[in-house]
Amino acid sequence: MRMSSEKTLARTGVYAFLVISAAFFLMPFYVMVVTSLKTMDEIRVTSIFALPDTPTLQAWVTAWQSACTGLNCNGLSVGFFNSVMIMVPATVFSILLGAVTGYALSFWRPKGTGLIFGILLVAAFIPYQVFIYPLVRMLSQVGLYNSLAGIVAIHVIFGMPIMVLLFRNYYAGLPRDLFSAARVDGGGFWVIFIRLILPLSPPILIVAVILQSTHIWNDFLFGLVFAGSDNQPMTVLLNNIVNSTQGEKAYNVNMAATILTAAVPLIIYLASGRWFVRGIAAGAVKG
């Protein structure tokens, strides 16, 4: 009897901890949503936790269409489309390159495999500041600094360590006999890749897409440095809208803009469920 009441107490403790933690994680999101649905007049007089009296989407419309950074009042939509233009090619190219390289490294083992693998492993940990200035100079030399092609190239470059490690580790787990048999049948490099390896790759491709698309969407530093004012990604534009405003800030617009910027990775996260966790585990392997 005593045993079971102790157990009940422990269970209650577990759930109390989980619920309080969940409240801590959800609170900022709740505040973001309710703030974005209020008018500025209401924000001035009510608590940030209060539900909106008469919810309005006006702040969302303003954030999307006409929020200002300095003299530019074109809203966050510009940044959204810039981010899409950056994310799609950068994700595709970094995954293609990572898959081909991972395949070559694990099955064909060309000269220098150990060296390239080692350098990529180390590079995954090097602070980006170490590379930035030389890359700015190099891209200006070839006329790609402050261009869409330039920022895509940067994302492909810095996606390489994690993508190659991801695909190499996955391919290293495939049975080598499959590959040997295909070799005996006379399959060449590309034929084996396309006919044999790619059809076995969907799980790791999904992980790679989740990892790369969220990373690239969430990037701030590279977008700030390399994209140029015409291609500013959403994160950079968002920060400019919120942090460079003079005078009283439109907090409702700021929060609507913040949710809009978080929306794409959040949708990817919610839609991918356990795959996202797998991506993290795969990313953690590099440690």
């Binding site: 994680f25 900022p28 969407w217 968002l238 700021n254 919610l270 996202f276």
Partner: peptide, 21 residues
């Protein structure tokens, strides 16, 4: 899902939300 969702969002979003809260 609740414990991990902030990790899906960018540092910029995280910073701006807490600045407001």
């Amino acid at each position: 899902t609740v414990f991990l969702y902030p990790y899906a969002m960018s540092f910029v979003v995280t910073g701006l939300v807490w600045q407001w809260v």
